[in-house]
Structures are given as structure tokens and as C-alpha cells.
Design a protein around this nucleic acid. Structure first.
Length: 278
DNA sequence: AGTCCGACCCGAACGC
DNA sequence: TGCGTTCGGGTCGGAC
């Protein structure tokens, strides 16, 4: 499931392929990808664009064109890029881009949740700031800023992490890992964390995301970088998917529950539950 | 305004 | 073996 480290790994493998190249031909094979825009219309607009850079904000990939336009790609659950393109038919191929060096880049997405949105010059900042909060690995993501984003919120801290407003790029897996590292129970009301806990959570988020990037992301099933390589972060999970196994800190079996509608793993001993509850 | 929940998809895992 | 059912995951939009 691409979260920040996976998207960053895709970015770092896709950027050298695209940077400085012109999109000679674009075929969008799935109408859902560009909804509500017509796939042929977006494909036609992309043709001829020169790629200046490939960036990332939260879980969004941003193809920056020299024209000032941006192609915003969200991989959602199963989106991926492929370069070089695998031989043979692929029922999950949703778009193919031919570059001016003659090579093709394919976009595939089994579950078809992913989206491509073409933004005109000047539209990017507003689009992103309406949807996502601070970039957790940047200096500007301070404890004070994080605390302000959580202030007054009664939703469980895990839910606050999953909605991208407080901090961008954390999904189900890294949320569980960060909360375990910070010793915070996933159901604690977000606004009730004290300053020390917010600081610990910020550090934990940054630590698990950095490790995820170092390991080139986590491959549970589908995830691959743009060159087709799997990540290794799945070997570093302390709680995610490990129900019943002993906690590495205290030996208590890892518990599984459901928080904010998502499967949630935590240590019931070293992540203390909200006060007044058992 | 904040929070919750269903919709969007489809392959895998499971139950019978 | 084969069928049907359930699950999961990020984000959006509508309901509360």
C-alpha cells in the first residue's frame, strides 16, 4: 500500500526516467484514471509536455512540466509505474507514455483507485493545501505545528494520522508502527496527547518514514518501484500484521482491533489505553 | 467544524 | 472442485 516511503521510492526511480524527456505519445486506457476529465482529452493535453522534475507531497507524485503545468498522480492502493515495460499483455495496464528517447513508461493499477489530475500553472498549491497538511520530513514540521493540528480533536489519534490534514503521507501501516514506537494507544483522543507525547509521536513518525525510505518501501503484495523492484520495509514491522506475536519491548502478545474503520495492531501493555477505559 | 460512513474496485482468503 | 462471501485500503462526498 503506497504510503509516503513507497511514493518517495517511486519518485526517486521515476525521476531519472522522466526528467528532461518530452512526452511524445500518451495513451490513457482506463476512463476512470482521469475522471471527471475525458481520458483522450487529458492524453492529448499531456502530449508534447517537457518534464522538468518529479516531486512528491504526502502520497501525491507530482510530474512538473516546463510549461508550469503539473500532473498529480495518486497511486491509492495498487497503482505503479513500470520502466522498462514488461513484455506481454497486462490486463491491469491503465496508461502508456512514450518518451522522446523511444522508451515507454507504463502505469498499471489492479484496483483502479489511482488518479491522474492535470493542473494548470498556479493551481498546485491550492489543490494540495486543501487536502494535506505538513510534510513530516521537512524542518517546518515542528512539534508545535503538529500539536496545533491535533489540538481540540476528539477523534482517535490513529484516525487523525490517517486523515492527511495533520500530517501528510502516513497511512495505515506507518501509523501503527509510529504509535507503537511512541508508546501511544491508537484510540487515545488526538487532542488529549500531552506535549511530550506529541513530540514523541513526531519523532516516531519521522523515524519510521525515514526507515521506510531507506528500505525502499514495504512490499506486502503489489508494491514495486518504477524499476520493478520490491522494498524490504516489511521485515522491519514491529506491530503491523503481527497479531498474537510477542511485543519486542515487553513480550505481551500484539493485539489486533479496528480503529477509524481500519485494521489496527498495537501492544496492549506498552501502549496505555485512554484513561477511563479498559 | 469535526466526525462518521458508504462508495469506489477487485484479488485473495476463507467458508461451505 | 467450485461456488459464494468477506475483507481491505486511501480519499471523497454526503450525512449527521
Amino acid at each position: 500500500m503506497p504510503e509516503l516511503p513507497e511514493v518517495e521510492t517511486v519518485r526517486s526511480t521515476l525521476a531519472p526516467v522522466l526528467r528532461g524527456r518530452t512526452l511524445e505519445r500518451v495513451a490513457v486506457l482506463d476512463g476512470r484514471l482521469t475522471r471527471p476529465e475525458a481520458p483522450e482529452a487529458v492524453a492529448a493535453e499531456l502530449q508534447g509536455e517537457l518534464v522538468a522534475d518529479v516531486r512528491r507531497r504526502g502520497k501525491y507524485l507530482i510530474v512538473v512540466f516546463a510549461s508550469g503545468r503539473h500532473l498529480l498522480v495518486h497511486l491509492r492502493m495498487t497503482g505503479s509505474f513500470q520502466h522498462p515495460v514488461a513484455e506481454g499483455p497486462d490486463p491491469h495496464r491503465r496508461a502508456v507514455v512514450t518518451l522522446d528517447d523511444g522508451s515507454d513508461v507504463a502505469y498499471r493499477d489492479v484496483r483502479r483507485f489511482g488518479t491522474w489530475i492535470l493542473l494548470e500553472p498556479g493551481e498546485l498549491e491550492a489543490y494540495l493545501s486543501d487536502r494535506i497538511g505538513g510534510e513530516p520530513l521537512e524542518r517546518a514540521f515542528t512539534t508545535a505545528r503538529f500539536a496545533r493540528a491535533l489540538e481540540g480533536r476528539r477523534a482517535p489519534i490513529k484516525g487523525a494520522l490517517l486523515d492527511q490534514r495533520a500530517v501528510a503521507g502516513v497511512g495505515n501501516i506507518y501509523a501503527d508502527e509510529a504509535l507503537w514506537l511512541a508508546r501511544i494507544h491508537p484510540e487515545r483522543p488526538a487532542g488529549e496527547l500531552d506535549a511530550e507525547e506529541v513530540a514523541a509521536l513526531r519523532r516516531a513518525i519521522r523515524r519510521v518514514l525515514r526507515l521506510g525510505i531507506e528500505r525502499q518501501g514495504a512490499t506486502l503484495r503489489d508494491y514495486r518501484d518504477a524499476n520493478g523492484r520490491a522494498g524490504a520495509m516489511q521485515h522491519e514491522f514491529r506491530v503491523y500484521g503481527r497479531g498474537g506475536e510477542p511485543c519486542e519491548r515487553c513480550g505481551t502478545p500484539i493485539a489486533k482491533t479496528r480503529v477509524a474503520g481500519r485494521g489496527t495492531w498495537f501492544c496492549p501493555a506498552c501502549q496505555a489505553p485512554p484513561s477511563g477505559r479498559s
